[in-house]
Design a protein around this nucleic acid. Structure first.
Lengths: 223, 223
DNA sequence: CCAAAAGTGTTGAGGCTACACCCATGG
DNA sequence: CCATGGGTGTAGCCTCAACACTTTTGG
């Protein structure tokens, strides 16, 4: 390639993560308040520019850490936004990811680059910086697909979960009620989770068996 | 973001497409021979640098056209490669796609930037420029998933197909034999294709009914 | 012993696999 | 009329949706 062709210059890469949680039957997204221009004082998804000495995954981890204090957030690809004017100061292509974490993980409220950081219900997460409304919307749709084919929800339950808990989470994300008996059979059949030998008393009634997500999910062939 | 931070500078984006076809029971990929450094005279996948006045999709279409003379190749996302030293002259992040076209579409053998362009069986498509071996391998795996959930194969059959033809194509891509009766039922049930009222005599025997891919595929909910 | 939530089984319908025979055409 | 490949039906099994009762615990 002609390295000096001006058409190649001044393109940057944003790595952006929609970090979700599910809290008491409500799905929420983690947003930060921007301290600097552009979009100063606007809320935005977590992310930032890719440095030239790191991979996309490293950049995403660094950005998540810088902006929230969180480490080890597992990320899943969502989509790409390359509209030319999506960022005002410089052409930026956004590579977008999805993460899910337990709301109990502590999050820094203030960092060098952000003045606040908080969970928002999706209905409240509007008018974000850049094109983050659109990116968040895509991520939310892709999350629905991810939960039936991956262990993306693993981080929500650091010490395992009972099936009724998991079912509520699925119902929240999928926005529909599910039959208890059929949910059990289907989720086990999907091969995403496994039993443990622990039980937990949830709300002081009959103890429920605890499950956990498998670490590796094998794909099923349809042909 | 700090536009002048040197860590953000000099990153480029490669858009790369593994263009496949299936020809007489063999899957092939379209490669070009590079005219210029780096990797002069090496074979490579179709692609090149994103310009700062075009979206990713526009860049991909432009590159495919520049390097092969092909227009309207529909592309499907495959993966991203962001290893820091994957390109020698400049840091380049590769955004990789998959395309499928009919082998009968004519392809330019020589363009400004390439000295040759040809179809290769996958076993022969080795030692490519850059990290294209790895990218091609990913694309080939992702193609297997695409054919059961999208109309990616539509372009292989510009005037429709008979079910035996389609079955051979699936068998080639999936590398397994399929039962004729069950393939029929399953592929129709997937909702990817529809009947037409045409028939075709294929190899001079009983005429077979022709089908075509739907233009829009609706997704099925599993919960 | 009662309230609350967990856990489980069955039935009928539809889908899947595995398999063998008839049909339409060209030569 | 025969060779070639296209098209179809079925039996047995499995899976799925829909549905109601029993179990365990805390209070």
């Amino acid at each position: 390639m002609q390295v000096n062709n001006p058409l190649y210059k001044n393109i940057g890469i944003h790595v952006i993560c929609s970090i979700f949680t599910v809290d008491k039957g409500v799905i929420k997204v983690l947003l930060i308040k921007r301290k600097n221009e552009p979009y100063k004082d606007k809320w935005s998804l977590i992310g930032g520019g890719l440095y030239n000495n790191e991979t996309i995954e490293e950049a995403m981890n660094r950005e998540i850490y810088e902006k929230t204090g969180l480490k080890d957030v597992k990320i899943y690809f969502s989509n790409i936004e390359s509209t030319i004017d999506r960022s005002p100061l410089k052409r930026m292509v956004a590579i977008n990811f999805i993460g899910v974490i337990d709301i109990k993980r502590s999050i820094l409220k203030d960092t060098e680059k952000t003045s606040n950081c908080d969970w928002f219900e999706l209905g409240m997460a509007k008018c974000l910086a850049y094109d983050h409304d659109k990116i968040l919307n895509e991520a939310r749709n892709n999350l629905k697909k991810l939960i039936i084919s991956s262990n993306v929800l693993k981080e929500l339950f650091p010490s395992g979960f009972t099936l009724p808990e998991l079912q509520k989470t699925y119902e929240t994300i999928l926005e529909k009620k599910l039959d208890r008996r059929n949910f059990r059979k289907k989720i086990i059949n999907l091969g995403l989770i496994k039993e443990t030998n622990k039980t937990e008393v949830f709300e002081g009634k009959k103890p429920a068996k605890k499950y956990e997500f498998k670490n590796v999910i094998e794909e099923k062939d349809i042909f």
